[in-house]
């Protein structure tokens, strides 16, 4: 079994904790409880012939109230940058945070999650924006912690980027 540490980063209330709860406990809550410091969960999954124990570090959202301490990223192999697709400004924050931390921790496997995909009516990311992000090299998943859409796929893809291919 291999152990891999992954981190979820992004500004507050984009759904980082909710994504982890969906993936680990298959649960969702509408109530918003902001995360203090770090919240760590574990889940073991099977990738081809490898069992991967994912140590999931859900970090506090970085916003004007609070900065993110990059020391939390020590030892991480992969990161999810998370944005809320119904608030386009959270995508800008995600990109900004990524630019800053990638300077500190170097190149890690990274996926971009555009969360709250169930909020069709309020969706603010156009197909053009998506195409642009892809051309900037982002690996993107549209996810919904509420309905579960894309969540497992995203975690499995990131995990498979961390274990050697056979």
């Amino acid at each position: 079994m291999v152990r891999k540490k992954i981190c979820l980063l992004g500004t507050s209330a984009v759904g980082k904790t909710s994504l982890v709860n969906r993936f680990v406990n298959n649960a969702f809550s509408e109530k918003y409880l902001t995360t203090v410091g770090v919240r760590i969960s574990k889940k073991t999954i099977q990738i081809d012939s490898n069992r991967v124990e994912m140590l999931i570090w859900d970090l506090n959202g970085e916003d004007r109230f609070q900065k993110l301490s990059t020391s939390y990223l020590r030892g991480a192999s992969g990161i999810f940058m998370v944005a809320d697709g119904s608030r386009a400004d959270t995508l800008e924050s995600a990109k900004l945070i990524y630019r800053r931390v990638s300077g500190d921790v170097g190149k890690l496997a990274v996926c971009l999650l555009l969360n709250k995909a169930d909020l069709q009516e309020d969706w603010e990311i156009s197909d053009d924006d998506l195409a642009n992000l892809k051309s900037e090299g982002w690996k993107i998943f549209l996810t919904s912690a509420k309905t579960g859409t894309g969540v497992e796929e995203a975690f499995e893809t990131l995990a498979s980027m961390l274990v050697p291919n056979e």
Partner: peptide, 20 residues
């Protein structure tokens, strides 16, 4: 001190969400 900060953080973030 921390729980006060936490309460304020939650409040601030709730309001931020509500605002947007």
């Amino acid at each position: 001190d921390h729980s006060t900060v936490r309460g304020l953080l939650q409040e601030g973030r709730n309001q931020g969400l509500e605002y947007s």
